[in-house]
Design a protein around this nucleic acid. Structure first.
Lengths: 338, 338
DNA sequence: CTGAAAGCGCTTACAG
DNA sequence: CTGAAAGCGCTTACAG
């Protein structure tokens, strides 16, 4: 049933029905109530494509994931939060996956030109990010999960990666650890650069010199955590503590430590930075893992919120947040062996 | 730039341009080439909302997740595969999250009435599933990930849960295990019922009687795997083998075994059923875990494919697949202790 | 093979 | 507070 038919069935004009259903003020409350009730009863819903064509709004927000492979547990938490928030305003989420950065750029051009989305969510930005430049040039509104440098201000939500890793490093140094290894991500990404800066800063506060052999990079998988930790353990002066970039890296690190005949927590301390996963808790590992934790799901909800405000005309510079990260000390960080 | 403007710029009618861009046959190859080239150069893209209004197609496929909490690692794999496939045909994915089954039903009504999607993907069906009845009544095409009983045929892709767990159970029984525990999901769901059936069948083949104390149910989290396994170990006659419903359950089970002072693999054998996660491999656990594995991502791609065919008019009964599951024996299943 | 025109189902400026 | 009508940007049956 379309608007015209519905309107004539209840003896009103399409105009009035449309206004009543969109919550415009110029409709008498009784009329509005009658319209809404009838719509419910007769099962009328405005055709979304027609609505979008008429208003010029897409009613959807896009998010692009690069490499099916990177659509992992963090993506699902972010998506879950985003979806929860946008649902409330009837905004859809449009998911695209691409393989390369080129394809990602093409995807934004396509989304913008075909008016398929009103805004996009960008994640894991580089320190200088071409995608941000492109989106600003296209005039497609966007919110970044993370931070980046750009000429023009843009909306973003980031966590305090610097503070998180600095705090973790201080905690370990305070326990007497002198050789602290860091498993980081690609330092082209802002978050990884911030973490490295936090690590270096805290080491220097404690009079320790950063050792390149103890700073490695790779994907946040169990496999990579394992391999990098094996590398650390093979050093002539191996570390007594490892800061893992994610829970998955920490699992791999602990495995490498065990295989070397050592005991995680006792022989080699472990701190993991990670999200709060509903299905894998650091409290439940053996030993329980000290973490710098930040809930990705809550961030997703907030990012959804910010995107909606952006569309309502709030300026990007008013939509910038950095969330603190809490260090939660558990059993995997004990004093350094004598 | 809209169609009219673009068409006049290149000296053709809107009709011809539209046909050229949609790949209709009645356009001269040279004309088509010229149109496509000009569109690329001038950056013209049809407005997606207008296209949808004119054709009556939404150009999107919906998927609803119940409980933000259930949007976990399996969801992301499924989504990744789905997205990869649909991307190729320019079909969007619309993600909704809801809290209850009631809300999920309401979401389908809404999606159908507002013509927001052309089809939906339903997952984790119950043996008798109200959602399937609803979708059939609404006339909204759908593909089920899993199986269910219904009067009318519908499209589905399922894995052989019965065969997977039967095979795992046979493998353990063949190694001399007599007390084999099963960590299953909610048996209202078809997959969990099938797994239980496979388990019972294989036990009986080996002259073993299913023991209710060894059959438990719960979420597929590390925490639940831990708790249920602790329950098994507290029995007066504890099991010598555990079949875990997922990788996460297996992690929890292994932790419980270790905490009890036992050795996973040696004292208590472990088999896990699970997806192939790019970030957590059973080969990398200690001991390497025997699995019945099935790639969720590949299933997602195939389901996307099936949805597209459904929309092209293939009858649902021609779109039904059950994928075999392979048992991969690793180090966690050794002969039963004497 | 190409084009003029009606129609998809809404919203909203304008008029009352 | 309510309505008639134009317009959003496409597609496609019809005519040539």
């Amino acid at each position: 049933m379309n608007l015209k038919e519905f309107a004539s069935r209840i003896g009103l004009s399409a105009t009035t029905v449309s206004r009543a259903m969109s919550g415009y003020p110029e409709v008498r409350p009784e009329t509005r109530a009658r319209v809404l009730e009838a719509a419910e009863k007769l099962g009328y819903r405005p055709n979304i494509s027609a609505q979008r064509l008429a208003t010029g709004r897409a009613g959807a927000i896009g998010i692009v994931f690069q490499g099916g492979g990177r659509f992992g547990p963090h993506s699902s938490e972010l998506m879950g939060g985003l979806s929860t928030r946008l649902q409330r305003d009837g905004i859809d989420i449009l998911v695209s996956t691409v393989e390369t950065e080129e394809e990602e750029m093409a995807a934004y051009r396509r989304l913008a030109a075909s008016k398929r989305v009103d805004a996009v969510i960008l994640h894991t930005p580089a320190c200088k990010d071409k995608r941000i430049t492109l989106l600003q040039a296209l005039g497609l509104p966007f919110v970044v999960h993370g931070r980046s440098e750009a000429e023009k201000p843009f909306a973003f939500l980031d966590i305090d990666n610097f503070g998180a890793i600095a705090e973790a490093t201080r905690h370990l140094a305070g326990l007497g650890h002198r050789r602290i290894a860091l498993i980081n991500g690609d330092t082209a990404s802002t978050y990884a650069r911030d973490r490295e800066d936090g690590y270096r800063t805290a080491l220097e506060e404690h009079g320790l010199t950063p050792d390149p052999a103890l700073m490695s990079r790779g994907e946040f998988t169990d496999e990579t955590g394992f391999r990098l930790t094996q590398g650390f353990l093979a050093l002539s002066a191996p570390p007594t503590a490892v800061i893992a970039g994610s829970m998955m890296s920490a699992l791999g690190a602990m495995r490498a430590i065990r295989i070397a005949g050592l005991s995680p927590g006792t022989d080699i301390a472990i701190v993991a930075h990670d999200d709060v996963f509903p299905y894998l808790s650091p409290d439940n590992l053996v030993p329980a893992v000290t973490t710098t934790q930040s809930p990705m799901r809550a961030a997703g909800e907030r990012i959804g919120d910010m995107a909606l405000r952006l569309l309502q005309g709030e300026p990007p510079e008013a939509l910038q947040e950095v969330w603190p990260v809490e260090l939660i000390v558990r059993d995997s960080t004990r004093p350094a062996p004598a």
